[in-house]
Design a protein around this nucleic acid. Structure first.
Lengths: 229, 229
DNA sequence: TCAATTGCATACTCGAAAGTAAACATGTAG
DNA sequence: CTACATGTTTACTTTCGAGTATGCAATTGA
């Protein structure tokens, strides 16, 4: 067997392995999301994947490492989504902030369970792994704060405490992950529009009126749809 | 023994009982906060209270009921804090909103662990109890949305979707509970001021400049204190 | 003084789940 | 045809923690 063929097979194998890990992450995060980390057994995860428990141990050393892989994926996806936007030096801070919010919310809708699991189950991570993930998280907040600071310098934003404001904006988006349920009263599009409003007002930015952000009609006699978003 | 004396003793006993339940709630919520619901053993709670596990069963039928008591206390404190403010018909919507934010943040600082435990561990509640607490939570959101709607009618606020905006404001405050740690870089007072800013901008309210809300000084060369709030 | 109730602890049961040892099937190189 | 590697399962161990049966000491009431 030539070296080239061996390499090709090795690559293939890694792809297969990564595919399997991805499938495990998906099913495990779904169960962690519903039942919690401690409330989910490895047998239950294995059953959803139509394999057995020892099989999982061929991909993860233990249960905590599986949780780590899930949390890591969520935060790395978010970081990957914002980096090209922040690096685009041709765009104004306002444009970048708007695109950032849209990109992060897209990730939040796609990886909601990963993100919620991280928020809720961080305490179950190994100390080392928790620290690594917290650093990624800090990096995210730092990048956002830096963008706000840039906008303040150009006069686009009116921000008094960039760190706290970045934290609030990050919190707004994470909060969406925590309450959003598909099939609720608000569409994803409405949530994105609303969040853009909130974010721009938080930084004191002049919002361009977007034709697709329409106010809801206000009916008489109270607030509609309370409690069921 | 007269009926009056019996009643007095009964009240006394209830006070003692309530005091004990309160102590149990405090220690249990502290451990649930640190280690999670499933990660905390009843033995560990008992040890912190210098009693034994069966003692806990004289006050709670099971572990889930203890969690219920904690979650219930957190949300009921929040509701109790906002009710007199919302009922004060002499105040403008703007005034009431400001007082509401201050009152809820005060509760969040005092009952932080209760609130975080509810956010993280709701899935471990019995279905009936979870529903009851969710209803209290909905009531909170509804009252806040109603206030926003009132402010919109008086022209004080510019709110396009009162339900979503109320949800965002509630989320901002809950988010504080999720990240705040005593001894961090921001004082409670700074956090309250910042949150008031964010909330008023979210509803498009004209903020009165408050002498005690001072901007942080902006130093050269980047963002300070990132990751350590 | 002596029941009876209360308040709590000691010591147990029992189920569940993480992790493992060993076997087994299937393919592949020599 | 045989030996070894790969991928997966069956069947096991072991620990741990929720919940309980029972006992005992102190207080209360007659």
């Amino acid at each position: 067997m030539t070296a080239a063929v061996k390499l090709a097979q090795s690559n293939l194998k890694h792809e297969v392995t990564d595919f399997k890990r991805r499938r495990i992450r998906e099913e495990a995060s779904h169960l962690f999301f519903q039942l919690g980390y401690e409330g989910t057994t490895l047998d239950a995860i294995a059953q959803r994947l139509d394999v057995t428990k020892p099989f999982l141990y061929t991909h993860y050393a233990n249960k905590a490492e599986l949780l780590y892989d899930i949390c890591r994926t969520g935060i790395l996806q978010s970081l990957a989504a914002i980096e090209p936007i922040l690096d685009d030096s041709t765009a104004t801070a306002t444009e970048r902030l708007g695109r950032l919010v849209e990109a992060v919310l897209a990730i939040i809708f796609d990886y909601q369970e990963f993100i919620v699991v991280y928020e809720r189950e961080e305490k179950n991570l190994d100390e080392m792994q928790a620290r690594e993930i917290r650093e990624h998280r800090s990096l995210f907040d730092h990048k956002l704060a830096t963008l706000l600071e840039q906008g303040r310098r150009t006069g686009e934003f009116e921000v008094f405490d960039a760190v706290l404001t970045a934290n609030t904006i990050g919190g707004m988006m994470t909060w969406v992950a925590l309450w959003y349920r598909a099939g609720g009263k608000r569409t994803r599009h409405q949530i994105i529009s609303h969040t853009l409003r909130m974010v721009f007002s938080a930084v004191g930015a002049a919002q361009k009126v977007q034709s697709d952000i329409l106010p809801l009609r206000h009916e008489e006699g109270g607030v509609k749809g309370v409690g069921k978003l």
